[in-house]
């Protein structure tokens, strides 16, 4: 399973090159008019990229009226650069499928237009209606890889539909899932998330709680925007010690850098998802429980550290029954 990271910028890659040059990112870039950064990243930082996918950028278009590219713009971009991506999604601009009626819908038409122009976009499912799902199951040969749009993530049938598609032999990509808890439960082949950037924007980093097997935010601001004390302030956080090890030993940074520079927070979050991806694969393949970096770790290689962690036993302080709250350091 791959976690494609979106919203990574050149600065993040520079930090990756500087601090964790052995890491390879699965990168998802969003199509945007006049955007040179995508090409620059793919050209200049290819050693740090495992695979790259292209999103049509319609999510931004849907929520930002200033974004106004069209299917033809997307098509022109693909003509020039499609080869740089392992896959690219359909231009599914009708996010809420409002155009769907008895005669079809705009997204399917866009798919067909792109196909007629010689492209092979990955279709995106925005509704879990049985006719749509069954169509894809029947069309497994033509569309062996489909994506589940973010609009259906909260649908109660989501997990079931994913399972049906996978059982039919379809590889499923789930948009905008970065939650460890959820990714553990889904038999998808890939997901993407921009959580690292979102966490960063909110002045936070993400860490993994071994007890609950869920991700937890760490805030670098003492007060929230309403003037209320953040209960996840990093210095008071119960995961602080583990997080500190991850920052210093795995990512080779100082915690102070994260406090003052949001680029470092993005970088650390990006590394978290690299870690999470590797762990999830172990979990899916071997059933190994996810464990966040241990405090007795002294290595300097993320892969080796991950391997070590996978083989490590849970120390007493990580045992939920003997857990003591971490005091303010």
């Amino acid at each position: 399973m791959k976690i494609y990271q979106s919203s990574l910028n050149i600065k993040t890659f520079e930090l990756i090159a500087q601090h964790c040059p052995h890491v390879k990112i699965n990168l998802l870039r969003s199509f945007s008019l006049g955007d040179k950064e995508t090409i620059d990243i793919l050209r200049d930082f290819s050693p740090f990229i495992e695979t790259a996918g292209l999103d049509s950028g319609v999510y931004s278009k849907f929520y930002n009226e200033n974004v106004n590219h069209t299917l033809d713009d997307y098509s022109r971009f693909l003509e020039k650069h499609a080869d740089m991506f392992k896959f690219y999604f359909n231009y599914d601009e009708d996010f809420e499928e409002k155009s769907r009626d008895a005669f079809g819908n705009r997204n399917d038409k866009n798919l067909k237009i792109l196909e007629d122009r010689g492209f092979k976009p990955v279709p995106v499912i925005h509704l879990l209606n049985s006719d749509i799902v069954n169509f894809h199951i029947e069309q497994v040969k033509k569309y062996p890889f489909v994506a589940m749009g973010s609009s259906v993530l909260n649908d109660s049938n989501f997990d079931k539909v994913v399972e049906d598609l996978v059982l039919a032999g379809i590889s499923v990509h789930a948009f905008k899932i970065g939650s460890a808890d959820r990714l553990k439960r889904l038999p998808i082949c890939s997901s993407d998330c921009s959580s690292h950037a979102q966490w960063t924007k909110a002045g936070r980093c993400v860490a993994f709680d071994n007890d609950t097997q869920k991700d937890r935010p760490l805030s670098f601001r003492y007060w929230d925007k309403n003037g209320i004390q953040n209960d996840n302030f990093y210095l008071n956080h119960k995961l602080f010690k583990k997080f500190l090890i991850f920052v210093e030993e795995v990512c080779h940074c100082e915690i102070e850098w994260l406090v003052v520079d949001s680029n470092y927070r993005t970088f650390i979050n990006s590394m978290y998802f690299v870690w999470l991806e590797k762990y999830l694969n172990e979990w899916h393949e071997k059933g190994v429980e996810l464990k966040y970096p241990m405090d007795n770790y002294t290595g300097n290689d993320i892969d080796r550290m991950i391997d070590d962690m996978l083989n490590e036993t849970i120390p007493p302080e990580d045992n939920p029954t003997s857990k003591q709250p971490v005091q303010d350091s």
């Binding site: 009708d94 409002k98 155009s99 009626d101 008895a102 005669f103 079809g104 819908n105 705009r106 038409k109 067909k112 006719d131 749509i132 069954n134 169509f135 029947e138 069309q139």
Partner: peptide, 23 residues
């Protein structure tokens, strides 16, 4: 099959809406 149904739907669509009409 849904594939057959989709095919005839596309046929109707192509026949009726050669000219682009907004949804």
């Amino acid at each position: 099959t849904q594939t057959e149904k989709r095919k005839i739907q596309e046929e109707f669509d192509a026949l009726l809406f050669k000219k682009k009409i907004s949804s």
